[in-house]
Design a protein around this nucleic acid. Structure first.
Length: 646
DNA sequence: ATAGGGTTAG
């Protein structure tokens, strides 16, 4: 490079990376060229703003080489850089350093300076610092333009100080649509829905952002029906609106609606982005809707959508949750850039499908790759141990969490351990484990223990834990049912009925057990004793035929847990017509002999269904895959992949 | 230069 022939500013002209900038800069220094500080402007801006930049370098140059032309602009640039992500952790001290230097040089911060300062305070939630800046503004009686004012409102909203945000809003005579939207967002973000809606009603002119903010708040808090009404009413739906609506449904237990919206979106020629595809895949996973999922996968390939590590995790989860673990692992293998989520999806998929040994091997492989496990990957590992009854291994991993990885176990991890001990029949140890917890056990922990009490028939502990639970967490239907079953199974029919009565008296909403089966791209749903399906007569007939066949091979209906009196309409929900049995019968009459049947269930499979399905798989030579709340049961030739441990 | 969405793995 003929540096001496070039004007100083052009030296940086061709630089594209921070490395090249630094190289060029060092050339300047090495050759001792007497360059004016103004020539450093390009490298300061680049270091401050480019994602690959180096804010510390920018500060260094700025602090020691100042006296530049139009310097306030450059100071603002550096603060703007600090306010963005790569200033993380050092925003407060660095911005103060820069401000001090400005003061030394007698430079006055302007509107831009403050806008960026508040942006930084919002991004890093440095409340005290932001307050100080606000004080500086007032003290210097700096004229607040609409940009600063909105950044102050934004700052207070993010910090959860809505009263302060409101004061700034109310005291201004110049308010624009952004100010209104910032207030609405702030209220919504902090859970004050009625205030958000009130402002939405009052604002003089709404734009897309206003509508989407309210929409987002409604779906975030689970008011999906209201959200949908708003969605229909909206003057214009942007891509953001679709993302909010579809991910809202997918995350709030409305997967069917998510799929319906997705179809509507496509029919309107609106192109989905990858966030939507991930949500849709997640909805398919929940439903076990393999046809839909396959269609989405085909769409992704046809449109050449980039399969990043998140989209890949969603695909792996889809196939794992549809019981096709080999295909899930194929997707895993073909994913170039894997992140901890990609691995975790594969680990839990393997464990869910009865291949826990490989799950743990994959966990080790991930660590060997240099990818650090996070708290969710530990959940996957602990539940793998739990599926197999590997108590020692479970404790090994549980201890290594904090010892090796520095991850503090949370309630979910403790719940896994209680589940692990409880299912292995170590009920006393499980109870002692709960007693030794450093954090207060929640109802999920006690629920895990209660579940184990039922499985192992420990009536004494079951009653104790169950009564504690229905007292402390009164709206959870499952606890009443478990406790009542525990009573019933220890021949205490009256106590069982009493629990049911309490449940009715408290108007606890019962979420029914259901089973889903997908046929030709349509997801069919069955409840226990359900008679709403259009082919219901044939379905019941088909099941009765199946039963008479397997009875010849020794099937005896188990009636454990149904000895207590139930109301007339509940009688039909007895074990004999559990939802998975109806779904299976429907599958039998609608598919070719010998083909695989896949069923997805929202609660755990009962032991009667389990033994019936084992026999069916042998007698009718059918592979049956049932996904229950916890895991997969792959039935084949009289056996189940869970080895009867679940 | 100010405001909105973001998905995944238990």
């Amino acid at each position: 490079m003929f540096l001496h022939n070039l004007p100083f500013i052009s030296i940086f002209h061709k630089c594209k990376t921070i490395k090249q900038f630094k190289e060029a800069h060092s050339q300047l220094v090495i050759r001792g060229l007497n360059h004016p500080p103004a020539s450093l402007r390009p490298i300061i801006s680049f270091s401050a703003l480019d994602p690959s930049g180096d804010t510390n370098y920018a500060i260094l140059l700025l602090l020691f080489r100042t006296c530049l032309a139009s310097p306030v602009f450059l100071f603002n640039t550096v603060i703007r850089g600090l306010a963005r992500s790569h200033g993380r952790g050092t925003f407060a001290p660095s911005s103060l350093l820069v401000l001090n230097r400005m003061a030394e040089l007698n430079l006055t911060p302007n509107n831009f300076t403050f806008t960026f300062l508040f942006q930084g305070c919002s991004n890093f939630c440095t409340f005290d610092l932001g307050r100080q800046f606000h004080g500086m503004l007032v003290k210097n009686s700096l004229e607040m333009d609409v940009f600063i004012r909105n950044s102050v409102i934004q700052f207070y909203s993010v910090c959860g100080e809505m009263d302060d945000a409101r004061r700034v809003f109310d005291e201004s005579d110049e308010i624009d649509v952004v100010s209104w939207n910032s207030m609405i967002n702030g209220y919504a973000r902090n859970g004050h829905m009625s205030e958000a809606l009130d402002m939405f009603d009052k604002m003089p002119k709404r734009n897309n952002v206003s509508w989407n903010s309210v929409l987002g708040a409604l779906t975030k808090f689970g008011f999906l029906d209201d959200a949908y009404r708003l969605f229909v009413e909206m003057p214009r739906r942007s891509l953001v609106s679709w993302v909010v609506m579809i991910s809202g449904c997918a995350q709030n237990g409305r997967p069917k609606e998510a799929l319906a919206l997705f179809r509507e979106m496509l029919s309107l020629q609106q192109e989905p982005n990858s966030a939507i595809l991930v949500s849709v895949l997640s909805a398919c996973s929940h439903l076990g809707a393999l046809h839909h999922g396959n269609w989405v996968y085909a769409y992704i390939e046809q449109k050449h959508v980039k399969i990043d590590s998140i989209l890949s995790a969603a695909l792996i989860d889809l196939y794992a949750k549809c019981g096709i673990i080999d295909l899930a692992m194929q997707v895993f293998g073909s994913t170039k850039k894997k992140c901890v989520s990609t691995y975790t999806a594969a680990i839990s998929g393997l464990a869910m499908n009865g291949r826990s040994k490989e799950a743990l091997q994959l966990f080790e492989a991930m660590k060997a790759e240099g990818i650090s496990p996070d708290s969710i990957s530990y959940i996957a590992v602990l539940s793998a141990c739990s599926h197999e009854g590997w108590v020692d291994k479970g404790f090994h991993y549980f201890n290594s969490m904090s010892d090796v990885c520095g991850i503090k176990p949370e309630l979910d991890h403790y719940a896994c351990m209680v589940d692990l001990l409880g299912r292995a029949g170590l009920l006393e140890e499980a109870e002692r484990f709960v007693a030794s917890m450093p954090i207060k056990p929640d109802s999920a922990i006690w629920g895990a223990l209660l579940g184990a009490c039922r499985v192992h028939g420990n009536a004494e502990m079951g009653q104790r834990v169950g009564n504690l639970l229905i007292h402390s967490d009164q709206n959870h239907d499952g606890h009443y049912i478990l406790l009542s079953n525990i009573y019933a199974e220890s021949m205490k029919g009256e106590d069982a009925e009493e629990v049911r009565k309490t449940m009715r008296k408290r108007k606890v909403k019962r979420v029914p057990g259901y089973s889903l089966i997908e046929l030709d791209g349509v997801v069919h749903e069955f409840l226990a004793g359900d008679r709403s399906h259009e082919k219901t007569g044939k379905v019941y007939h088909a099941w009765d035929e199946i039963v008479s066949e397997i009875k010849k091979f020794g099937y005896n209906a188990e009636t454990r847990g149904v000895v207590f009196d139930v109301e007339e309409e509940e009688k039909e929900t007895l074990v004999g017509y559990h939802s998975e049995k109806l779904a299976l019968a429907f599958g039998f009459m609608s598919t070719k002999p010998g083909s695989l049947i896949r069923i997805v269930k929202n609660i755990r499979i009962c032991s009667d269904c389990h033994s019936a399905f084992k026999l069916i798989s042998k007698v009718f030579r059918r592979k049956i895959a049932v996904r229950d709340r916890k895991r997969y049961h792959h039935f084949e030739d009289g056996h189940c992949s869970c080895m009867d441990y679940w």
